[in-house]
Design a protein around this nucleic acid. Sequence first.
DNA 1: AAGCATGCCAACCGCGGACTT
DNA 2: AAAGTCCGCGGTTGGCATGCT
Length: 219
Amino acid sequence: MKARKIKKGLWRPEEDMILKQYVETHGEGNWAVVSHKSGLKRGGKSCRLRWKNYLRPNIKRGGMSPEEEDLIIRMHKLLGNRWSLIAGRLPGRTDNEVKNYWNTHLNKRHSLHKRKTLAANGRHEDENISATSATDTATEAPTPQSIPPPPAIHNGSNDSDSTEAMMMGRKEERLEDGERFVYGCDMGSPLSMPAINYSTSVVFDEELLVPWLDSSAFV
DNA sequence: AAGCATGCCAACCGCGGACTT
DNA sequence: AAAGTCCGCGGTTGGCATGCT
C-alpha cells in the first residue's frame, strides 16, 4: 500500500483552520480518519494533540494564576506526574501545559526549596516516604485547610471514574495489600489518618480518593 | 554587534491499555 | 483467544526567544 507522507513540525494557521473546521463539523474521534479526510498531511496523533491542546474551545492560554499554581503543587504532591489528572482539575488547562509549567517553573523552585529545607532540618530526604510514588520532587508544605475532605462513603455506582480509577491503580503505586496508597507527603490534609503524624505522610483509600478528585469541589 | 547560554514551550515519540475484528 | 488498531499518557526533544558576556 502507498504510505502517505506525514508532515511534522509547527502547525500553520491554515492547518489549524482546516482541522478546527473539520472537527467542528464531524466531531472528535478516530483521528486517523480525521487526518486523512480533512486533507491535512498530519498524523492522527498530531491532529489529536493539536486539537486537544490548542484548538479545542475553552482552552485557557497564558500565565497561571497563583491559585492554579498552588493547586498544581498540591495535586502533584498527591498524584505525582499524572498530568492529565492534574489538568483535569484546572478548567481550560491541558496536561501538556501543566507538565511544561511544572518542568520549567515549579520543579526548579521546588528542588531549590527542598535543598534549603533539607539543609535546615538536616534530615534525609527519603525519610518517612512510605511507598514508591512519582512524587520525588514534591516536598513543600501547602496550606492544609485549602484541601476539601474526601467523601465519607464510597459511591460504588460511580462508573465515570473508571478511567481515573484505572490510572490510580497502576501497579507501581500499589502496596502489597492492593488496597491503599501511601504517599510520602508532609501536608496536613484531612486525608490523613488521625493516628498518622501530619508532617510525615498521607494515607488514603483509592476508592475514596478517586471520586473525590472527580468531584467539582476540588476545582 | 556578535556569539553563546539558558529558558520556554510546542510537538514528537514510545509505550501500554482498551477496544475491535 | 489472538492479532490488529486506536487512543491517551508521560517523557523527551527541537527550535525560537531572550538574556548575558
